[in-house]
């Protein structure tokens, strides 16, 4: 089994704050993996390190065996936790841009999804509702045939119908040689789509397990078990 992402003793410190503290992880292909933890536990830091928006203080992260670089960026499809697209562009221009920059971008797949939601291709992003904007971002991200999808809080603050759309889009678009890493603090909402769960607590991995095994061994849902581990 090919390992899509590997972390070895990965650390990121901001001054004296340890955002990530010696993280070791092995993520295999064909999995949907939940990166779960409360706010400030280091989820976004880990994702930024993997997409090389940050450089580690110590240790390393490798994507398909390579240190983060333009080469790995071509294999990683990253959905940040904010509006990151130029908001004056219309949907069609965004498709052009993704096609220009990412050779693995599948325009027809994106068009199908945009049409299914009857999103106007000639509407500038900034005129779209917050929910539509987020859907457009997700569609662009999932329309790439990437090796690794890094989705940072894709379901935070969306209504249940949008959440279903998002999860369904994720399930239907990744293929068996890819890995999807979804960071969230809303575990109950993503639980049913996960293969594996990673619990992150104060920058450390406290659990990385197959979700079915976790349910079997604890007799609890991931959400319940999470609440127990992170009890205040």
């Amino acid at each position: 089994m090919m390992e899509t992402m590997v972390c070895n003793g990965l650390c990121k410190y901001y001054g004296s704050v340890k955002a990530l503290d010696h993280v070791d992880l092995h993520l295999e292909e064909g999995r949907i993996i939940g990166l779960l933890g409360p706010n400030g536990s280091g989820k976004t830091t880990l994702i930024k390190l993997a997409s090389r928006l940050l450089v580690p203080t110590e240790g390393e992260v490798r994507i398909c065996g390579e240190l983060p670089s333009p080469v790995t960026k071509a294999m990683v499809s990253y959905l940040p936790d904010r509006n990151y697209l130029p908001d004056w562009m219309i949907a069609r221009e965004l498709l052009d841009m993704y096609e220009d920059f990412f050779t693995d971008f599948d325009r027809s797949r994106a068009l199908d999804m945009l049409n299914a939601l009857s999103i106007d291709l000639d509407m500038p992003l900034k005129k779209m509702s917050k929910g539509t904007k987020e859907k457009v971002q997700l569609i662009l991200t999932m329309s790439r045939h990437a090796k690794l999808y890094l989705l940072d809080e894709p379901i935070a603050g969306v209504d249940p119908a949008a959440r279903d759309f998002i999860l369904r889009t994720i399930i239907s678009n990744y293929d068996e040689s890819a890995t999807v890493l979804i960071s969230t603090h809303l575990i109950a909402d993503v639980e049913s789509v996960l293969d594996e769960a990673i619990f992150l607590k104060e920058g450390k991995v406290v659990l990385h397990q197959n979700v079915d095994e976790l349910r079997d061994s604890t007799g609890k849902s991931v959400d319940e078990y999470f609440r127990e581990v992170f009890k205040c």
Binding site: S51, P70, V71, Y78, Y84
Partner: peptide, 13 residues
């Protein structure tokens, strides 16, 4: 700024 999230995710040095 926010657009940097896109720029630095592009396969460009």
């Amino acid at each position: 700024k926010n657009e940097g999230y896109l720029s630095f995710a592009l396969p460009v040095s």
